[in-house]
Design a protein around this nucleic acid. Structure first.
Lengths: 241, 241
DNA sequence: ATTTGGTTTAACCATATGGTCAAATAATAT
DNA sequence: ATATTATTTGACCATATGGTTAAACCAAAT
């Protein structure tokens, strides 16, 4: 009754990969494989975190032998780092695009710009916020790069918003809300859908709530958040799009 | 160079437990130990999730031998269930207390009651929301009890709020906001601090933000959220505490 | 065709971890 | 005191999993 402790792939995958391989160029496919691994790893790490992710699952998803992961990325940690870097690059690109495309005029427009920027970033990486928080919560020493990015996220919000606010405050058109509460409002409203998505996907139907997290929802959400935040700090009734 | 694969406790714990044991009654301490285990397990499960939690870590935290966990709770899954049940009971108790203590009058008071109820529940179990979402996200078949509880959470919000809303809508004093957006606003604002807490604990200092998640913060938060939500749906300028 | 260097694979190892068990110990009843 | 029952412990097992390695494979150069 000797049970071999095999770790071979459960096979049944990899068809999709071959398709992709043939469609492009048939030579030098090592590049592709490296990328497939990265993509598969991203899925797995984002969903289960560093500890929860399984190398075998990544290999299966990518349709390659497990040893290849080590061949290309050395270790689980290195692969994880590569994934993080990849995501952060993507986020930074979106961030700069957004920043270049906007020139806010006035307080409300300023709020809208901030909200738009981050809703766009995270709707392109909807699982990232939850992943981030979970990794910070569980690992004693989370990858510093992630933290830096998040510090930038909030730092930028804070600076930009409060700069625009101070002039309004002096004019007396803005309420005297505590800054940490205002920031918590914005962060909560912006990040809420991404935190709640896994839950809503399951219980949404049970509630007769037509909650689809698609482009139109987020577009609508940007306006709602902007209005909500603006109305929460403006004094008189000029708040109305 | 034979390395024994020991799993014995790393010792250095358990002092605190002995203290507690002596302080109460010296006989029938099995009850206590069972409870110590449950408390330790709750800490561990809430922080790392079902898969991430380590039985040895729970044993160490409780200051007992690992086998005792199995003696009292049979298996990891059973212990997990016990933990969940314990939390849900606690939550339900708080919920009923809150419900009994309030009799809302008018729309704004209704909003305040809902917000108060859930802020109180979760400020007593601040790690629960994040834990919940993560468990739902990672495990294919999450414990149904958790989901039921959360469905109730939102169902109640929805019913109660929209019941109060419809009368206001007919009076024309309330904006025509999409219900799913309103619900998302409330959920985001209420749950935001609990989702963001692990992050803020670390990056707060780096931002000169005095964010302490204590009683006074949550008390303040209840009013802010109530105002914010109310202002976001009311039409004229009667929104002002 | 043969060599060469990069790529891929199966088999294997070391460790962590959930779980079991028989012996030891403490508590309780007789 | 002694027997019986409940509790506690250390040693051990089975499996999962990250990682290694030597051999096989394969494409391109000679």
């Amino acid at each position: 009754m000797v049970k071999p402790n095999n770790q071979t792939k459960k096979s049944g995958e990899g068809v999709e990969i071959e398709k992709r391989l043939k469609s492009d160029d048939n030579s030098q496919n090592s590049q592709n494989i490296e990328e497939f691994i990265l993509i598969a790893a991203q899925k797995e790490f984002i969903k289960f975190g560093l500890k929860g992710a399984r190398m075998q699952a990544i290999a299966d998803e990518a349709g390659v032998n497990k040893s290849l992961l080590h061949y290309y990325y050395r270790s689980k940690d290195k692969l994880y780092d590569a994934v993080i870097e990849n995501i952060l690059n993507k986020i930074q690109r979106t961030y700069k695009e957004q920043e270049a495309a906007h020139k806010p005029e006035g307080l409300k427009d300023n709020i809208r710009m901030i909200v738009t920027t981050y809703i766009n970033i995270f709707s392109e990486n909807p699982d990232f916020p939850l992943f981030l928080v979970h990794e910070i919560k569980t690992s004693r020493k989370p990858v510093p790069t992630i933290l830096d990015m998040f510090i930038n996220f909030i730092s930028y919000m804070k600076e930009n918003l409060f700069a625009g606010l101070s002039s309004e405050i002096s004019k007396g058109t803005v309420k005297n809300i505590a800054p940490e509460q205002l920031l918590m409002n914005i962060m909560s409203l912006v990040l809420g859908p991404f935190f709640l998505r896994p839950v809503m996907d399951i219980i949404g139907p049970a509630l007769n709530l037509p909650l689809e997290f698609d482009k139109s929802f987020y577009a609508q959400r940007i306006e709602v958040i902007t209005d909500t935040v603006f109305n929460s700090i403006v004094k008189n009734e000029e708040g109305k799009a």
